[in-house]
């Protein structure tokens, strides 16, 4: 059974239909992509999957558990993490504090044990910090741990968003345009990083991306959107050859 199952998902804002009966699935351990022209509904779909939007109909399940309509923090706790299209770091906090935020839903000590400085609480703090450092190290920015997150270079901010999402110990990670604004060199590093996420940590990856070269390079399966509808779904070669895709999407690229 697939890790992520989306069935007949519908979303509308007032009278505007944003998503029409979308169905697709992502297998465990896969790297898949969502592509489509701007305004096709890709980010809206991500927002439905992560609980930021409430779909009008249909169902979403993660590892067999229904997650449709749950609030975002519950969905993250169930193992679905995300990054944002426009980087959303806690800019005024340190890089390490940002990475540590992912561990919140994996830890439990509250106000009282912090006031009493319970040994178990001290140990948990240590675990959170270690996990934060581990993921900073994984994405390669551990040397910046104590800097202000907003002061990082653009590429490093993207890496930090990844580290933060990974620190929540997800089964599936959704990346919303991870290559946006990166130069060619950084894009190569990103391809490498995305593969390492899957190969070294076993986390399944679903990404939205406009950079066709990158998408074709990393994805095992591609789902194509246009005007809120799924128009194709398959391996890169098949999608590339699909006449509807060429017409709707690649055709516009000249």
């Amino acid at each position: 059974m697939a890790l992520l199952e989306v069935r007949d998902l519908r979303l509308s804002f007032g009278g505007l239909k944003v998503l029409h009966d979308i169905s697709f699935s992502v297998e465990k351990g896969a790297i898949n992509s969502l592509i489509g022209p701007n305004g096709a509904g890709k980010t809206s779909l991500f927002n439905c999957l992560t609980g930021f939007y409430k779909p009008k109909g249909g169902s979403i399940s993660l590892g067999g558990r229904p997650i449709t309509g749950l609030p975002p923090h519950r969905i993250t706790a169930l193992g679905l993490a995300r990054t944002f299209q426009n980087i959303r770091l806690f800019k005024e906090m340190t890089v390490l504090e940002n990475a540590m935020s992912g561990q919140h839903c994996r830890s439990r000590h509250g106000i009282m044990s912090a006031i009493l400085h319970l040994p178990a609480q001290r140990r948990e703090e240590e675990t959170i910090r270690t996990a934060g450092m581990r993921w900073l190290d994984f994405v390669g920015i551990e040397q910046h741990a104590h800097r202000r997150a907003g002061g990082l270079s653009y590429g490093d901010q993207r890496r930090l968003e990844l580290a933060r999402a990974l620190a929540s110990a997800p089964e599936l990670i959704l990346l919303d345009e991870p290559a946006a604004g990166l130069n060619e060199r950084e894009k190569l590093d990103l391809v490498d990083l995305i593969r390492r996420i899957r190969d070294e940590t076993g986390v399944t990856v679903l990404l939205i991306e406009h950079d066709m070269g990158l998408v074709m390079q990393v994805s095992e399966k591609i789902v194509v959107f246009d005007y809120g509808q799924k128009i194709a779904d398959g391996p890169p070669e098949a999608v590339r050859a699909d006449p509807r895709v060429i017409e709707a999407y690649l055709g516009t690229e000249e």
Partner: peptide, 25 residues
């Protein structure tokens, strides 16, 4: 409390509520 898990959670919520929710808070 400021230097504990809940204290950090407050700062996350203060700086970016949506990102905080998205990260599991």
């Amino acid at each position: 409390v400021e230097r504990s898990r809940m204290g950090r959670a407050w700062f996350y919520v203060r700086y970016d509520e949506d990102a905080a929710a998205g990260i599991g808070i």
